[in-house]
Design a binder for these strands. Structure first.
Lengths: 219, 219
DNA sequence: TGTACATCAGTGAACGCGCGTTCACTGATGTAC
DNA sequence: TGTACATCAGTGAACGCGCGTTCACTGATGTAC
């Protein structure tokens, strides 16, 4: 009886947005969204396959049809994060095409911190290598894409005579600087220590300091 | 019967190093050591009160006599980490008393990375604020001690006319730089990206770059 | 020095719980003819 | 267009497990007299 009623309902609403009778439609995405919500609200330690399924309103066995296991689920989530980061960085580079490598690098640094602040749930998982399958090809590809943009920019800076040091060291230092800033901000320590409340302003000051000193026009 | 044998054994070995009959002697320290071993070998996610007790060869209820709960245990471990970091930094400052603030700051940066590499288990917990009781007075005191040393040094640099920017920003930037370097190194990303194998050399290059540019002698 | 007693620091059983994963299953979907 | 059938994407029960915390307990220690 309940089945027949449900079916009748389905036939009426078949094309409506809310239809989610038996097959979900886009459960994979919904599960990754659930991971993000849990990490954001409670932290990485609270992610469980069952809670993720619960939030997506499916049975706890459903995720197994989309991810090999818990590690696979987290790896997919980290991959999503690296893809978004790489997209953000690529957009930043495209938007500052007309400027010099140092100002491109500064913009990338601001974008990195912005990404971390806007997506704390992804940032909190992306570098937890002990939770991930770091050999996963999609994860590798996504994180490569983000790093390649960085090293290309410091190489351009070096080629343009803008840097005091080689491109590799400049890339490592720049990455460490913005990564540390993002991590300390998200852990709450920087706010406590400095009383700062605007991560963008802080990122701007720090990246500006970096490029004007390390990448100051030396040509 | 077994009891009497055990007692006889105890009476004979009462003063021996290995004696650990009923009262442990220094269980609190032993439990913190166990936490460190687990984090180092398996990661923070694998720390459980029961496993910690198991490694210290006591019953799983024993830790409750020394720590309020799991969060208290981790908070004590983080406190131990901040204390050791502050000690390391203090020693570094004492050892470079005769030099200028920029070179003191560079030495502190190297010490920070060195600490993280030598104590990855502490570093992995110290900034996981969601796992800790961040209001714990001992934790606050220990982490204050480490930060105070940093801000004092950048203030000295500013007072000596060594910095392009104010002491607070210099402290934030310096901290972010070495913290990011340590975090990326421990996550394994930097090795993969740069092929580097010596964190000390990398820390030396990066801190040197920072102080010569940001704190270059401007007087 | 000996003894009574309070306190400390352990034990082991028990509680109720949520976890990851596997399994046989079934409803829904898509495709070949 | 209709139908048979393979495949896909879910369900719900079950597995065995380890977890954090509490509790009454007891052995060991230290102290007052």
């Amino acid at each position: 009886m309940r089945r027949r009623v449900a079916e009748a309902t389905r036939q009426c609403q078949d094309t409506a947005v809310g239809r989610r009778d038996y097959h979900h439609g886009d459960l994979k995405t919904a599960l990754l969204d659930s991971v993000g919500l849990i990490v954001r609200e409670q932290g990485p330690a609270f992610v469980s396959v069952r809670e993720v399924a619960r939030r997506a309103s499916v049975s706890h066995a459903a995720p197994a049809h989309h991810f090999r296991n818990k590690s696979g689920l987290l790896t997919a989530f980290a991959t999503q994060g690296f893809d978004r980061l790489a997209d953000t960085v690529a957009e930043t580079i495209a938007a500052s095409r007309a400027t010099t490598p140092p100002s491109v690098l500064a913009a990338m640094g601001r974008a990195y911190v912005r990404f971390a602040v806007d997506n704390p749930e992804h940032f909190a998982i992306m570098f937890r290598t002990e939770l991930l399958d770091v050999t996963d090809p999609q994860l590798v590809r996504a994180s490569d894409r983000a790093y390649d943009a960085l090293i290309a920019t410091t190489r351009a800076a070096q080629a343009g005579g803008f840097t005091r040091v080689d491109a590799q060291l400049a890339a490592s230092a720049a990455w460490a600087l913005v990564h540390g800033l993002a991590a300390l901000w998200l852990s709450g320590r920087l706010q406590v220590r400095t009383g700062a409340s605007d991560p963008d302003a802080l990122a701007e000051s720090v990246t500006e300091l970096f490029v004007t000193t390390v990448l100051g026009d030396q040509s």
